[in-house]
Design a protein around this nucleic acid. Structure first.
Lengths: 217, 217
DNA sequence: GGACGAAACTTTACTATGTAAAGCACTTTC
DNA sequence: GAAAGTGCTTTACATAGTAAAGTTTCGTCC
């Protein structure tokens, strides 16, 4: 079960834990896995390839959890659960999470990674669509709803984990706080301010994810 | 006016523009500035020092713009302006913006950088407080308001710039879209769902910013 | 049962990078 | 006019990614 590539990815995990994502070295990973300094390159081509495999594995795990959240019969609860999944992941798995903020380390265009990320994206989008079908914020452009909720959750988690938000909420539980504030936000969004758009209830663009090119490392 | 350190920071800018933040090399920066490969280290101590100076300069500029936005007599408009400042900055200055997402490249604890960032933070917080004093969302915990708006704007800009959001809003103007969606959000937040908290109108924690340690590079 | 060949690594070697240390020229100061 | 500082460069070295070739192991086919 634990063949070499898996062991290498696990080694990446522990190297990130001890040295941060920038401290990841093919040589360190090799040593950590009890192999030579070129073993990782042998299996994953090069350093970006190694990170790509590592991150794909992480997104696959998150995807599973999000889809599980989506199975909640209560659409609103599913929404909160999905946000909590992301937050909990950031908390429990800081190493994979840190690589999510460092896409330049990976081959962003790799199809496996792409697929794993779209899986998460569509999981979330589906939950939102279902909420709207259930009568939540019916007049709002679904794109705006996705943009608002996704931006909020993404920003909240990032700002909490990186410090600025955790300080004012000193001592309070991260995931609980996110659930509460997010729930408030969802309530508010149910009210249509001046937000009803002429082109409301537009369907999702087929594109799904689309990411900027990775820089030529 | 354009003494050597300034020229080096400008060199960083053009190196990031052509090679991305990870493509920044003391040697490249030196060459780009017409100096030796150790010139940057001579002035800024080391690579993190160079990035720190570069980022501090960027935050100072943003801070000026935010404070300017804060001078808008209309509190609500000031809020939208501040968000637009951030978005416009991400658009106009992708190189400094990219380093903002890469704090590990810098000495996060450097007091100049800290000060420049707090200046931005307090500029934004002040605008929000003023909005609430003006009667907007009066029952809501100010911390929640800051968390919600800041997380949203931060997430929106990041997701747009890095791709996922720009796709569904294909062709639409970035800053305009942010203003519109953010305005909708502010309207919604004026409605108190179940969001009124027992400890509402709590004052800001004195801490302001607080950031996780930089990894030992 | 022995030759062939592929899979799973390792060894070697080369180039790029960060950084410490010393050097060197030019200017200021006394 | 010597001493001390300023503003850089030169030199040197350890660490990194990666290409290429070598080695070992193991299954397979005749």
């Amino acid at each position: 079960m634990s063949e070499t590539p898996t062991r290498l990815l696990d080694a990446v995990d522990s190297v990130i834990a001890s040295h941060g994502p920038s401290g990841v070295t093919l040589r360190r990973v090799g040593t950590e896995a009890g192999l030579s300094h070129t073993a990782a390159a042998h299996y994953f081509n090069d350093k970006p390839g190694l990170f790509t495999a590592y991150l794909t594995r992480a997104y696959d795990q998150v995807g599973v959890h999000i889809e599980h959240a989506g199975e909640n019969a209560d659409a609103r609860a599913a929404m909160l659960d999905a946000a909590a999944v992301y937050a909990q992941f950031a908390l429990d798995s800081p190493s994979p999470f840190s690589v999510m903020q460092r896409l330049e380390l990976c081959n962003v265009d790799a199809p496996e990674l792409w697929a794993a990320r779209e899986r998460c994206y569509f999981g979330v989008a589906a939950i939102l669509v279902r909420n709207q079908e259930d009568g939540w914020a019916p007049d709002r452009d679904i794109r705006d709803l996705i943009a608002t909720t996704w931006s909020f959750v993404h920003g909240f988690v990032e700002l909490w984990v990186s410090g600025p938000l955790a300080a004012p909420y000193d001592g309070e539980d991260f995931v609980e706080t996110l659930r509460r504030v997010f729930d408030d936000l969802l309530n508010s969004l149910a009210y249509t301010g001046s937000g009803a758009r002429p082109n409301a209830k537009r369907s999702l663009s087929p594109g799904g994810l689309e990411t900027s090119q990775s820089e030529s490392a």
